[in-house]
Computed example of a mutant assay.
Amino acid sequence: MFRSYARLALFALGLLVGVQVPGFIEDYSQRVDAHRSESEQGLQGFRETAKRFFSGDLDALVSHYRASNDAVMQSDAQSVAFLVDRAALLDDEYRAMQGPWYRQVWHLTTAADPALLEETYAAYRYQVLLAPDAIAWGIACALLLAWLLEALVLGIAWLLGGASATRTRAAERRHWR
C-alpha cells in the first residue's frame, strides 16, 4: 500500500515539475527578447555613426576607435566592442529561442547563456499552467520520473537478491491456492 502511495506522490511530483518547463522556456525567451531590445537601443547611436562613415560596419567603427591616438576614443572602443559582442550574443540567443520546442529545450540545457539562465532562475515564479503544452510536459515528466525510479528500485532489489525471493513467494502463493 505504501508503495502505491509513493508511486502516486512520485507521479504528482513529476507532473508538477513537468508543467514548469514551458513557463521557464517562455520566461527565458522573454528575458532574452527584453535584453536584446535594450541592447539594440544602446547601440543605435553607434549604428548610425557606423552607417554614416563605415557602411554600417560596427567592427570597423570599433577598429577606428582603437586605432585613434586619443585615449578617450581607445577607452570607448572597449565599451563599444562590449556592446557589439553583447548584441551579437543576444541575437544568437533570440534566434535559438525561435525554433521548435525541442530545440529550445536542447539550447537551454546545453548552450544557454549562463548569466541569462541564472537571471531567469532568480526571477522565475513557479506556476501551474493549464495550457496543452504544459500538461503534455507534466505527464511526460511524471511518467519518465516514475518509470526511472521504479526501474532503479527494481534494479537495486534484483542486485540484492530481493527479486528472486519475491518471485518465489508469489509462485508459492499461486501453487497453494
Rank of each mutant, 00 (worst) to 15 (best):
H107F: 14
A151T: 03
R7T: 11
M97R: 03
D70A: 06
L61G: 01
F46K: 00
G162V: 06
Q41E: 13
R7N: 12
Q44D: 13
H175W: 11
A157D: 13
Y126V: 15
S39L: 09
R66M: 13
A171K: 10
A6K: 00
L144V: 13
S4T: 14
L116D: 02
L152P: 00
Q74R: 15
V17K: 01
A165G: 01
D91M: 09
A123P: 05
D76T: 07
A123N: 11
H64Q: 05
R3V: 12
L10A: 05
D91K: 10
L116Y: 00
A77P: 05
A163I: 02
R125M: 04
G14C: 04
E150C: 04
A171V: 08
Q78V: 14
F2Q: 05
L13F: 13
Y124N: 03
H107D: 03
R3G: 08
A115W: 06
P132Q: 07
Q41P: 04
E26G: 11
L149S: 02
V105C: 02
R52D: 12
V84I: 09
G42Y: 05
R167F: 15
T166L: 15
W176D: 10
W147F: 13
S164V: 10
L152F: 11
R169K: 11
F54R: 00
F24D: 02
A12L: 15
M73F: 15
Q104H: 04
D70V: 12
L159R: 08
Y102W: 12
A34W: 02
G161N: 00
L152A: 11
D85R: 13
A112N: 00
W147I: 08
R52K: 04
P22V: 07
V17M: 11
L89Q: 14
G99Y: 07
M97Y: 05
G56D: 04
F54D: 01
A96T: 05
G42T: 06
D76Y: 14
E40G: 15
A111F: 07
A170S: 09
V17Y: 04
E119Q: 11
E172V: 15
R95F: 14
Q127S: 15
F54H: 02
S29Y: 06
W106E: 08
A6H: 01
L16E: 03
M73A: 15
A34I: 12
F46M: 06
L129M: 10
T49C: 07
E150P: 01
Y121F: 15
R177M: 12
R36M: 08
G161L: 01
H35W: 03
S29T: 13
G23M: 06
L117G: 04
S55L: 07
R103T: 12
A146C: 09
A60F: 04
F82Q: 10
F54T: 01
R47E: 15
S37M: 13
M1I: 03
V21F: 09
G162T: 06
D133Q: 13
G42A: 10
S75N: 14
E40V: 14
E93W: 04
T109E: 06
L129F: 07
I156D: 00
A88Q: 12
A87Y: 08
S164L: 07
L145S: 03
R86Y: 12
R47K: 14
S29G: 14
L8F: 13
S75G: 15
A112K: 03
A67V: 01
I156P: 02
A81P: 02
T168G: 03
P114R: 12
A146T: 10
A170M: 14
K51Q: 14
Q41G: 13
G138S: 10
N69D: 12
L61K: 00
S39Y: 06
G99K: 11
P22K: 02
L145H: 01
A112T: 05
